[in-house]
Amino acid sequence: MEIFGIPAQALYGQLALGLVNGAFYALLSLGLAIIFGLLNLINFAHGAQYMLGAYVAWMLLSYLGIGFWGALVVAPLVVAVLGMALERGLLRYLRDVDQIYGLLLTFGVALILEGLVAQSYGWSGMPYANPLPGSVDLGFMRMPMYRLVAIAISLVVCLAVWIAIERTKLGAYLRAASEDADMVQAFGVNIPRLIMLTYGFGVGLAGLAGVVAAPVYQVSPAMGSNLIIVVFAVVVIGGMGSIAGSVIAGFGLGLIEGLTKVFYPAASTTVIFFIMILILIFRPSGLFGSTR
C-alpha cells in the first residue's frame, strides 16, 4: 500500500519515530513551562539535566546493577535534588535582577555539566541496553516494543502533571503563584520552598526524559544541548509558560518532523525552526500563549 507515493510502512515508521521524538519534546518543554511560569526563568541547563538523567541511569545500571525501571524512579530524583541544590545555592540570588541573568547562569551550569561528563566518560556515546526488546504488531505496522512504551510513559506523565496542576491544591498554589507570588506568600504559603520544589520537579521531568531516552538514543554528553535548542523553538511555538501548549506542541512538532523526514528529508532538521518563524510572524505569543 502506498500513500502519496510513499510506502505506507515507511510513512508509519517515520510517524512513529516522530512521536518518539515528540514524547521527549513534550516532557522537556513541559518542565521548562512549569519552571518558567513560577520562576520566570528560561532554564538553559534543562538539556544538560536531561543528559544527566540518562547518565545517572547508565551509572545505576553499570555500577549498582539497578535496571531501567529502578532508574526511572531514582534518576529523576537525583536530578531533582541536584536541581533544588542549584536553586537554593545560586538561582535564588538572582530573583531581583533581570531575568536574562538566570538564563546566563543556567547556560554556565549547562557547560559545566556537559564538560564534567565529557571529562569523565568521553564525548562518544555509550549504549544503554534496551529493557524491552521485541516488537508489537499494531495491525497496520510493527513497532519496537520499547518505543511504544516510551511514548506511553511520556503521555501518562504529561497527563498526570496536567491533572496535578489543574486539579490539586498544590497545583492551585502553583497556578496562583505563577500569577502573583507575593499574594500567595501573603496568604502564608512558603513561596521560597514552593519555588525550590517547582524547579526540582521541572528538572526532574528532564531527568525522567533522559532515562526514557537512554535506550533510544546513545547516552552522550552532547545529547541534551542539541535537543534543548529545538525544544526552545517548540516552546516559542507552543507559547511560553503554557502547560497544555507545551505538550501539544511537543507531540505535534515531533509528528511534523517525522512527516518531513518522509517527504523532504533535507528539511527534517530545520522544519521546526521554519514553523517557529511562521509563528513569530503570524502569532508572536505562540499557539497557546497569552500575550504577556
Binding site: 506568600q185 501573603a186 496568604f187 513561596i191 521560597p192
Partner: peptide, 8 residues
Amino acid sequence: LPPHRIAR
C-alpha cells in the same frame, strides 16, 4: 520575617 511567616 518573610511574608508567609507573618501571615501564619
